[in-house]
Write a protein that binds this DNA or RNA. Structure first.
Lengths: 207, 207
DNA sequence: GTCTATACCTAGATAGAC
DNA sequence: GTCTATCTAGGTATAGAC
């Protein structure tokens, strides 16, 4: 009996866990949290339902991990764009566009992260990540006020409005069929309107 | 055997049904959809769990009715304000303020209507009512554009942003304890910032 | 029409063989 | 470590007495 697991063992264990998270993410993106039962997820990952509990203490823990991973990627992307080059106003516009475009490219996952009914553990994570989105936007809004590009305002409120607006605008297209947005509008037109609205919302003068 | 129920019988039956809906609404506002089991709701209404099925064919049907009643009241109030006196810009401001104030006055219910995890039947109703809110705001935004008070824009997008923004701004205060908003801010200050943001969002020139 | 009691189902979690 | 089989809890819905 070895006192500790061999590196190969650890690696295989870790690989299984990673595959489990990855496949669970796909299942959630496809059928939503409610339908993503332990059995369905385990089947998708090619292991037995019981084996899930070798990697996570509960379904809620797995769900929370799935959410954190996926949402974390979006926060990282948004963070990079909002801290990139350009004026605060330009960065806000690009941040909205990148965020929305990514959501439209992976609608199922975006809907799961933004709006889909979920168990309390996931709901708590969602609130936390919405706070992070808000904090990122709020920072840039305040930067814009400091440099005189944006009028005086409550950065937190504006940031909340931006994240809420993105979510609301996207949810309908997200919920709809597969093709383009609800009506005949193209994705690019939708994004253009969305960024224009966001800049108005922050009080940036029209282009 | 009577061929039809007497008026008194009908009235008592209707009264029980109404009480059931009313108490179910309270339960949902207090503990959320997930915890509002048939048993809990029936207990609150003072009837047995099985008797619920004399009034509604399923739990989902009862939940949908609860949602429709409550959300319908909010739509009616918003509709009245948005079609009331004043310029389109003034009406948008008042609409936001009334909507938000009512939500803050009945936080539990507002959270249930706007954001709380819910079964699919309720989720569908929620989407439908969000569309109605949007349609109301969109109409006034277009009116504002027609009268030259608001710049050219996609009314639907702006309306979606307004409803999303309200929801996002309110959810945090709604989720929190009971007192005032998250930080030391008073309700009135929050409402003032919210309406200011909404008017910027629609492109109304600053006061 | 309402109650009590219960059937039944779903889904999370566990036990023990391999 | 993973599987199969099973246990259990919670909750919807139904049956039959009153």
């Amino acid at each position: 009996m070895a006192y500790r697991k061999t590196p190969a063992e650890l690696q295989r264990l870790e690989a299984t866990r990673e595959r489990l998270v990855a496949r669970a993410t796909e299942v959630v993106a496809e059928v939503g949290w409610a339908q993503a039962s332990v059995t369905a997820v385990a089947d998708s990952a090619g292991i037995a339902a019981g084996s899930v509990y070798q990697h996570f203490p509960s379904k809620a823990a797995l769900a929370a991990e799935v959410f954190r991973r996926a949402a974390g990627r979006e926060v990282a992307v948004l963070d990079e764009v909002l801290h990139g080059p350009g004026t605060p106003v330009e960065r806000i516009g690009r941040g909205i566009e990148v965020f929305a475009r990514r959501a439209l490219e992976n609608r199922g996952l975006a809907y799961a992260l933004l709006a889909a009914p979920a168990e309390p553990a996931v709901g708590a994570e969602r609130l936390e990540f919405r706070r992070r989105y808000r904090a990122l936007f709020a920072e840039v809004v305040r930067e814009g006020m400091a440099t005189g590009l944006l009028p005086d305002q409550d950065g937190e409120i504006t940031a909340a409005a931006l994240t809420g607006a993105i979510g609301e605008v996207l949810v309908d297209p997200l919920g709809g069929p597969g093709a383009d947005t609800a009506d005949g509008r193209t994705t690019d037109e939708l994004l253009a309107e969305l960024t224009a609205m966001a800049l108005r919302c922050a009080g940036a003068p029209p282009a």
